[in-house]
């Protein structure tokens, strides 16, 4: 039973959720309200991580984040640290991997807001950014929490992407899903069983929250 792997999983899921909530909200807002040429192309590109096999995604992440990749090389010169096989690396990969799960519920929630409320806000003197904070966000709390829950669960469940980008370094990149896989490989079914059992209540409670919010909104 590896508690450390659980700690890494939860830390990773919390990081990815926090980052995505901030990054995805403005993107979802643009997708919900703005009209520009090529919008459907951009949207499809953002949803691509959902449609690709995780190993394909992981392979491209290795190419991009590796010491000779377009993101890995400048990162290494800047910080002196590599991206592959580090927590930062798997956090970055998890964020990109879950982008569609953050954007879709938020976009749906933003679109549901009556356009006249936004018109009213602008007539009342609010800039678009102020209207986003004072009118759009408070009226789409349900969608935002749903997005957070989905991202969290999706990150907890990630396996293929993480093993390719992070490997399995205990305490750093070895997450619970990888620990379970390794336990099974080592025929340690007792540990695998215990760890698997831990996932059940977590996932169940989160789904309960998501469904409850869905009903309310």
């Amino acid at each position: 039973m590896e508690w450390q792997a659980f700690y890494v999983t939860l830390k990773l899921a919390a990081t990815a959720t926090a980052v995505l909530m901030v990054v995805a909200a403005p993107i979802a807002c643009v997708l919900a309200y703005a009209r520009f040429p090529g919008k459907s192309l951009v949207e499809a590109l953002l949803y691509l991580p959902m449609a690709l096999p995780p190993t394909v995604l992981g392979f491209y992440f290795i190419m991009v984040l590796g010491p000779r990749g377009i993101a890995g090389r400048p990162w290494e010169t800047l910080t002196g640290q590599p991206l592959l096989f580090t927590f930062t690396g798997i956090a970055l990969a998890s964020v990109l991997y879950s982008v569609p799960f953050a954007i879709q519920p938020m976009k749906a929630a933003f679109r549901k807001i009556d356009r006249r409320l936004l018109e009213s806000a602008s007539v009342l003197g609010l800039s678009p950014a102020a209207a986003f904070v004072r009118v759009v966000l408070p009226n789409s709390i349900g969608g935002i929490i749903a997005a957070a829950v989905l991202v969290f669960l999706h990150t907890i469940g990630a396996f293929g992407v993480l093993i390719m980008v992070g490997g399995s370094i205990p305490g750093v990149t070895k997450v619970a899903s990888i620990a379970i896989y390794e336990a099974v490989e080592a025929m340690d079914y007792r540990a695998a069983h215990l760890m698997s059992l831990c996932f059940l209540p977590i996932s169940y409670v989160f789904l309960l929250i998501a469904n409850k919010l869905g009903e309310e909104s």
Partner: peptide, 20 residues
């Protein structure tokens, strides 16, 4: 001039109060 700078009061046909 954008709406926010015109400083008009506008009461719409149906309710556009902020629900929250």
């Amino acid at each position: 001039l954008p709406p926010r700078k015109r400083k008009v009061g506008y009461v719409f046909q149906d309710y556009t109060l902020f629900p929250h």
